[in-house]
Write a protein that binds this DNA or RNA. Structure first.
Lengths: 342, 342
DNA sequence: CGACGTTTTGAAAACGATTGCAAAGCTACC
DNA sequence: GGTAGCTTTGCAATCGTTTTCAAAACGTCG
């Protein structure tokens, strides 16, 4: 029972009972002083606070969660945190949650199949909500969440399913902006380079490019994929840029890939944007560095995280809301890797 | 009570009692089937498992934690996750913890003063251990942890205090390796550029450089600091590299800063390493990129995280271990920003 | 068949809080 | 002073588990 320490010698864990005894009131009184909105006279409030302070009492969040209906724990199921983008999102989410007094429980999962496991673990800890930013959500798991009244927020992917809110960037529109900039800058042979079809956002970005170009009477001259883990596009970019009919622009699914393309172009002695223009997606901090000055589509990570948190609160207040798909607007940031538009 | 759903209609939350009833056994029996090392006959085990599966039962981790002596929750108090280094550590830690069935609770704190708050929140949730990777640990808080039997692991900083284990890279030795490489490469006018004195590791690295140079009869020709948040060394590097008596090498407290120096050198038309050699610290993935090929001191993040987790297990098994300071060895990785040694 | 050690079992007491309910206190008004 | 109405209070039930303890079941052996 309890920790290894003898519980009377050093007062290992101070409980509500200790405070009650010290203040000469019942445990209910102490509880009421610590839960706001509960009634307690000024006198007892003062005595309880004094006793609690003297003893160093803090309510046990676990016990509180067991009986109450909130744990103030929100789980984030995420594929990797090493990725700049993901870690920025993690940070933004933690910040936004903190404003509501909620804490972040991390489930780092490797591979799509593990999403399920991560979500289950979140449910074991009675998380108030589950944010999934890796792969998709298995049907059985989302149904379990629904039954348990635990909101699911899926980020970066659309899944039309009861109880699953989807929040993601407006990838198609971002790609459209990029395409129009490139075409207006004189590019006609535009290629796409992204992660494979496993990356939902990337495929939307590719579709967006295709649609926008079609609107202008064009089509991508090439499409290539990059191993999402191992490289950031060196190999694929080399192939693309060494082809006999070299593209005059490459639109990339991700800034990291675009930076790889920049490096490859540099290595091949090609000038950017004169020989080949490059556009990325996400606007990670590195893209702005003087060495790169990458034109890219800004993905507002902070707004996304705040929207996620707002949606969580809304659903906790009103559990039966219909599922939504919310698109966060994206905005082109023109820097030095595309030609200047007059 | 419970979630918003009527608890009989859809069986919102399946408890141990439901399983017991379905299997025709007591709750104790169910509990024993789900805790390993407990005795249950093959027959009941089978019936309980069948019932649990049919009902979709999973034990409530919170209730379990309330009575048991482990929560399997480990808290990480961290300053920022946007930093590549920190996010790599976060990921490595989550992975290492997962191997022991432990989950990661994140407290993202802004500023040193908030470390206390983050740790307190961790204690509220009865975390089994607290890993601090931001600033230092207030005395009162470490004493509270000690009293509660919660191990503290402090990363990246030394704090000689009862119950606080410190795990950090061998910054001095890394700096020594860098200094020797530079000097053997012919550099004599070596400058240091790092974050201010608030960054403990950086100051150790600076000291290490100073000591190693002193050993060789040299001293740093300049020392400058960089705003740890806003830039990665452009301004400071520009000053340093435009000085009348330009240094022939810059040793940086961080890879990010070193990359900033590389960019600055490039912008000023200086050749690296011929005009100025550059060495970083940490060996973040970006340093290996073809555009940079930064010589740097490798900080083994995965090893650090594993050591942290090992130490947590050791302390949980044997709470009264004396505090340790463990140095993780660092290793120089020579790439293209220093002169080749014959 | 009875005695005896060894599992296996269930009842009940924790764990540390919250909260419904009814009693108690208080204020104010007639 | 009595009573209505409101606030404050404490008792006890509850949340979903684990675990102690003693009883029951079981197998073995004399």
């Amino acid at each position: 029972m309890g920790r290894a320490l003898p519980q009377n010698s050093c007062m290992g864990r101070i409980t509500i009972r200790d405070v009650a005894k010290a203040a000469g009131v019942s445990t209910s009184a102490v509880s009421r002083v610590f839960t706001d909105g509960a009634s307690a006279s000024a006198a007892t409030r003062a005595r309880v606070n004094a006793a609690a302070k003297a003893l160093g009492y803090r309510p046990n969040a676990l016990a509180r969660a067991l009986v109450g209906e909130r744990t103030n724990l929100v789980a984030l199921v995420i594929g990797q945190a090493r990725n700049v983008f993901d870690s920025l999102f993690l940070e933004a989410l933690a910040d936004a949650l903190a404003k509501h007094g909620q804490n972040l429980l991390i489930s780092l999962v490797h591979g799509e199949s593990a999403v399920d496991e991560g979500m289950m673990s979140a449910l074991d800890y009675q998380a108030d909500a589950v944010v999934v930013a890796a792969g998709t959500v298995p049907l059985a798991t989302s149904e379990r969440c629904l039954r348990l009244g635990v909101p699911i927020i899926l980020c970066g992917r659309v899944l039309e399913r009861e109880g699953v809110d989807c929040i993601l960037g407006d990838n198609r529109d971002g790609a459209r902006q990029a395409a129009e900039l490139l075409v207006r800058g004189g590019c006609r042979r535009i290629a796409y380079l992204g992660r494979g079809p496993t990356a939902y956002s990337d495929s939307e970005r590719e579709d967006g490019l295709r649609e926008a170009l079609a609107h202008l009477g064009l089509a991508p001259v090439a499409t290539a994929t990059v191993d999402p883990d191992n490289d950031h596009g060196f190999a694929a970019a080399t192939t693309l840029l060494s082809a006999p009919q070299r593209p005059d622009a490459i639109f990339c699914g991700t800034d990291l890939i675009a930076l790889g393309v920049l490096e490859t172009a540099r290595a091949l002695g090609l000038r950017v944007p004169e020989d080949v223009a490059v556009v990325g997606f996400d606007n990670v901090p590195m893209s702005a560095w003087p060495s790169f000055r990458l034109t890219t589509v800004d993905f507002p990570i902070a707004t996304t995280a705040e929207t996620v948190v707002e949606r969580i609160q809304a659903r906790l207040a009103e559990p039966n809301l219909p599922a939504i798909v919310r698109r966060i607007p994206t905005r082109l940031v023109a820097r030095a890797t595309t030609r200047r538009i007059p």
